[in-house]
Design a protein around this nucleic acid. Sequence first.
RNA 1: GCCGGAUUAGCUCAGUGGUAGAGCAGCUGAUUUGUAAUCAGCAGGCCGGCGGUUCGAAUCCGCCAUCCGGCUCCA
Length: 639
Amino acid sequence: MVALTLPDGRVRRYDGALSGAEAASDIGSGLAKAALAVRVNGDLRDLSCELEEDAEISVVTLKDDDELVLDLLRHDAAHVLAEAAKELYPGIQVTIGPAIADGFYYDFSREEPFTPEDLEAMEARMHEIVDRDEKVVREVWERDAAVELFKSMGEHYKAEIISEIPEGEPITLYRQGDFIDLCRGPHLPSTGRLGHAFKLTKLAGAYWRGDARNEMLQRVYGTAWRNDKELRGYLHRLEEAERRDHRRLGRELDLFHFQEEAAGMPFWHPRGWTLYRTVEAYMRRRLEDAGYVEVKTPQLVDRALWEASGHWEKFRENMYTSESEERIFALKPMNCPCHVQIFNQGVKSYRELPLRMAEFGSCHRYEPSGSLHGLMRVRGFVQDDAHIFCTDDQINSETRRFCDLLMGIYRDFGFEEVQARFSDRPEVRAGSDETWDKAEGALRDAVEEAGIAYTLNPGDGAFYGPKLDFELTDAIGRRWQCGTLQVDFVLPERLDAEYVGEDGVRYRPVMLHRAILGSFERFIGILVEQYAGGFPLWLAPVQVAVTTITRDGDEFAGKVAERLESAGLRVTLDTSAEKINYKVRLHSHAKVPVIVAVGKREAEDGSVSIRRLGSREQQSLALDEAVVRLSEEARAPGA
RNA sequence: GCCGGAUUAGCUCAGUGGUAGAGCAGCUGAUUUGUAAUCAGCAGGCCGGCGGUUCGAAUCCGCCAUCCGGCUCCA
């Protein structure tokens, strides 16, 4: 007797074992047709699996609004891709091909590189394989036989994978048509069930097992969905991301550029620099309000300090150096050692702690050429850096204050969703377990008190202390790690920082390294993408475009612009001989948030016509009123 | 750094061995216009750099640089 409990609670009883497919068709013929797999006591299994014992089952169909269904489809898509590649390219070796976010990939080993034409050919062959509707059959093999099979096919990577499957686990192979692959499963019952809502998207190199010392394999990426509508939706999201790309908008909005003489270092144009300075002024205000003191330290520092701090040993290959007067200097990659130098001037008292020392620190790091990416990954950047010198007992309250400050700042920039990652002690570390216990407890309590959701990253802390990383979610759901707070027990020791305690004895302070934006460059890149270039008024490089409709408005328009400027607004005046339609279009493309139009009517009664970016509405206001309203609206948060 | 692709006017892109093109932007002139493109004319290029093949190279080959997509890295 086998009793199967369905999701609605009904129980169906059978005389003996039956397959998932049989169970589905017993429930209903429609369901049998739609069935892709079964869930048995929560585990996803093939339709062909034998149900021998009582279980809770549910039949999985495309209707299940569940990531697992997508994973199933994508995993099958990867297999179909591998089958297509094997058919098209004799001698090719298949390695691994998992489902990933939004799609799948498969890594191949082959002498000759794939071309974009190969991509098309493989995709076309995949559609054929789906149309062939090959049955997908699960087989359990004996280990040695499986290794022999793959070796005989020249599939050495597969043989290697099998030899690493732990003893006792079954070796399962899936066969579809002439293609057989090692796979844990589960899979769809036949290739036809995959449908045609998939697309191969890109080619890339990828190291075997992600290790740069291994062979570079050829990775083919694809995307797969339940139906065409979902596929189109995904492709649309890609276009949306492309539309927001800060590199493209940076050029179109004349914010910055890069050129090969200074790879990885932005040239900020007037508009981009205005945006930068607006962000900087805002941050400076928030830090002042939060009790920080601001400092500025040298760019070029003798290697002796980097040796003392440990950077010369650990970070050397990322540092730019320069030589003069027979001494070697390094462009600072971080600000911390310099901040300790300021701390070390004079004798510090416990009364001065916590000392929050901030710097908009200009840093340079050599980054491999292949990892540069617009403003997101650069070689020269400015951190919104600060170091909090404090006692062990102050770690919790300082972390709590930091979390509040960070949340407030993200909110002001339009980011509501924030997640933290808490990384605790790694295997190799400095400091006693007691110290770590205390610091980890202080961080965890603080982030919880601040009401920030967090995940645990066990063992991922730095050797010098535990840390919190903060990720924000942007307007199209992407996550960016920006903020960080790292406890450091080591650097104060190395650089001999100390303070005099209440009892007159000298103690080591703890240092908290912390940043909120991360780097101005990267954060501004994220802001550009967040707003797709259409910034809120307080951030917009040009806030108001004053445009004339006819020459009758020229004089008054000049006065309007002047009034707005003296009220602190960033204004551009356009008295060109174009039609108002053209001017509206021009300034709309430049994403100026407010367009003020002035014609004969306005000049006569001292009013302005206001149009907001993205709206067709017009609002007529007296000039005085407009100046008051716009300057109020343009005020930066906290100003 | 590694794999693949790309690099032609300010921008977007045509141009596969025989005198470098278009649209937009720019400039000049005309037009004075009521909320997303007025018309005409002009100008604009070491076809990323260096070497090679060829009578002849934007075009074919090699090296380099940069950019793009990944991988690796990001204490």
